[in-house]
Computed example of a mutant assay.
Amino acid sequence: VPIGVAENTRLHVFRPEDGSEEHYAIEIGRPDRALPVLTRLHSACFTGDLMGSLKCDCGPQLRGALAQMGAEGAGILLYLNQEGRGIGLANKMRAYSLQDQGFDTVEANHRLGFEDDERDFRVGSAILKELGFGAIRLMTNNPAKISMMEKTGVKVVERVPLVVGGNAHNHGYLKVKAAKSGHLL
């Protein structure tokens, strides 16, 4: 599937045996499976990725990661269907409403009965292994992603920062990501 950043692109679709959400791997170029591949684990964000919401940095992270992979000529972007840090779009909209009332993103999730982050990055590790990758250069600001990759047998040889998308509407959100979730911003 040719895309704007790279004409030589393949889309892999992964459906778990239990019939749960599909996840996607966008393969830019033909990365050598013996070398660490530039990789991004990107959780679906309808509001940021598709609507261009200014409340988060997701859309700019998605586009920035794809652009860097295109510039390098190779990479794997895993698009994981774990909307709203794993709580789903409807609950994310409820959390947005709570944020409008003064709660930060973590507090809003807790008020809805969720953990700070409900995502499961083990699925990303499984997909990378299925594609034949054992070592990656991970584009992330989230140390939890690095830790999970390492715990599940995918070697992270480099963390590639991806600090994009800050604006007046998400300044507080980004501060909370750094202070409460340990993101390296």
Score class of each variant (00 low, 15 high):
R94M: 12
P16E: 12
L50E: 13
E27D: 03
G88P: 05
A178K: 14
I87F: 01
A126R: 15
E21P: 04
L62R: 07
R137Q: 01
Y96P: 04
M51Y: 12
A25E: 02
S20F: 11
K177N: 02
G165Y: 09
A74E: 10
L11E: 05
I87L: 01
L11P: 04
G75L: 01
F46V: 15
A6R: 03
C58R: 10
R15H: 13
H169K: 11
G102K: 06
M139S: 01
N8V: 10
I26K: 09
L98N: 12
Q82L: 14
D120G: 05
I3Y: 09
H110Y: 00
L77V: 02
K55R: 15
A168I: 05
V5R: 05
E118C: 07
E17N: 13
F114Y: 05
E150S: 15
A178E: 11
A71K: 13
P36K: 03
D49G: 05
S43Y: 06
G59N: 07
G75E: 00
G52Y: 02
G172C: 06
K55F: 12
T47N: 13
T39K: 03
G19N: 09
S147K: 14
S53R: 05
N142Y: 08
R30M: 09
Q68G: 06
Y96L: 09
R10Y: 08
H12R: 14
A168F: 11
L66R: 03
G88W: 12
R119P: 02
L128M: 10
I28Y: 05
G166V: 11
S53F: 04
G113S: 00
Q101N: 10
G86C: 07
Y79I: 11
F14V: 09
A44E: 15
K92L: 15
V160A: 07
Y79S: 10
F46K: 11
E21Y: 15
G70P: 03
M139W: 02
H110F: 00
A6M: 06
L138F: 01
N91D: 15
F103E: 13
T152S: 13
M93E: 11
G86S: 10
A44L: 14
F103M: 13
N167E: 05
G153Y: 11
R122C: 07
G73L: 02
L38R: 12
G182W: 00
G153A: 15
Y24R: 12
L162P: 06
A95E: 09
P16K: 15
L38H: 03
G19F: 13
S43V: 09
R10D: 08
E22T: 07
I26M: 13
S181K: 14
R159F: 04
E22R: 13
A25C: 11
Q68R: 15
P16H: 08
I127W: 05
K129Q: 14
A179R: 09
D18Q: 04
M69S: 04
K151Y: 08
V157F: 03
T140A: 08
V106R: 00
L138D: 01
V156F: 01
T105C: 06
S147F: 05
H171A: 14
S20H: 10
V154Q: 01
L66K: 04
P36Y: 08
S53Y: 03
P161N: 02
G86F: 12
G29Y: 00
V106L: 01
P143S: 02
L98E: 07
E22L: 08
V156L: 01
K151P: 12
L131C: 04
L11Y: 08
P2S: 09
A108P: 10
L50R: 08
M149A: 15
P143L: 01
G124S: 07
L11S: 06
S20Y: 06
